[in-house]
């Protein structure tokens, strides 16, 4: 078991170095990717900046700096997810309809691991630098104290957030095993990520409920951010973050495994 885990970690690094090498081959593409990656983060930053037209404005009691902090945090889990899970989008088309899954299943490695590692979007990681800048700036405005412990908690929570996205989208991608021609559900879920960029308290009850217990995007950025912003009334939810991450990922993996068992090759 442990040997198998170590083998997978070794291979993950091999895959990663392969990706970095291929990306460096096409420098113009890489630069374009990095440039648009930064631009992508700036859009919401500018939007928030313009939205707070007057200094005194708040959205439901959250000041501009709170909102910026939450957004800055949300960049971390989202871009980690973009970097390491982009292939989930291709499960239906490339792997099931085109039959690439057969190749995957022949190897003595975890199938989900292989699918995920076959495409890594390292350019997305540039977003983390922008995110760090926003978090740093907002913290300075709010005079938040950073200690090594807090940085560590920040990293763990960002990782948990990535797992929540990963779990949700692995679940949806697994539906392709039953309905390979439909990636339809991915798009609206993808758009729902936008809800998680802002304080969840501004939404109505129904939406809050969905974002907490059905598609738990509230735990990706908003609840983690409240911990650093010092809003202690959300503490119970903050403590739940790792649990939600573990459960969401477990659901994703179980659905994937069920799907693999259900899978019949397209081949003749």
């Amino acid at each position: 078991m442990i040997k198998r885990v170590i083998l997978h970690i070794d291979l993950a690094f091999a895959y990663l170095s392969k990706f970095i090498k291929t990306r460096l081959e096409y420098k113009a593409d890489l630069l374009l990717g990095l440039f648009t990656g930064v631009l992508f983060q700036l859009v919401t930053l500018i939007f928030i900046d313009v939205l707070f037209a007057k200094q005194a404005l708040t959205i439901g009691g959250w000041t501009k700096w709170h909102v910026l902090f939450i957004y800055g945090f949300s960049i971390f889990p989202l871009n980690l997810f973009f970097a390491f899970f982009p292939n989930l989008y291709n499960v239906g088309s490339k792997y099931i309809i085109e039959g690439n899954l057969d190749r995957i299943l022949l190897r003595p490695l975890n199938s989900l691991f292989q699918v995920l590692m076959e495409e890594v979007d390292i350019e997305s990681l540039i977003g983390l630098i922008v995110g760090a800048g926003i978090v740093f700036y907002a913290s300075a405005q709010l005079s938040l104290e950073w200690t090594l412990g807090r940085v560590l908690i920040f990293a763990i929570m960002a990782f948990c957030g990535m797992l929540i996205y990963g779990g949700v989208f692995t679940t949806v991608a697994s539906f392709s095993f039953w309905w390979p021609d439909r990636i339809g559900l991915m798009a609206p879920l993808f758009n729902m990520i936008a809800f998680g960029k802002y304080p969840v308290t501004i939404y109505n009850r129904l939406l809050q409920c969905i974002l907490m217990w059905v598609i738990p995007f509230a735990f990706v950025a908003f609840f983690p951010a409240t911990y650093f912003l010092g809003f202690d009334e959300f503490r119970p939810f903050v403590l739940l973050i790792p649990v939600i991450a573990a459960v969401t990922m477990a659901v994703g993996i179980s659905m994937w495994n069920l799907g693999i068992r259900h899978y019949e090759s397209t081949g003749s």
């Binding site: 939205l51 404005l57 708040t58 959205i59 802002y198 109505n204 939406l207």
Partner: peptide, 10 residues
């Protein structure tokens, strides 16, 4: 919905 709630809160 995202912008509806945002502007309402603003």
């Amino acid at each position: 919905a995202v912008y509806y709630f945002l502007y309402k809160a603003l």
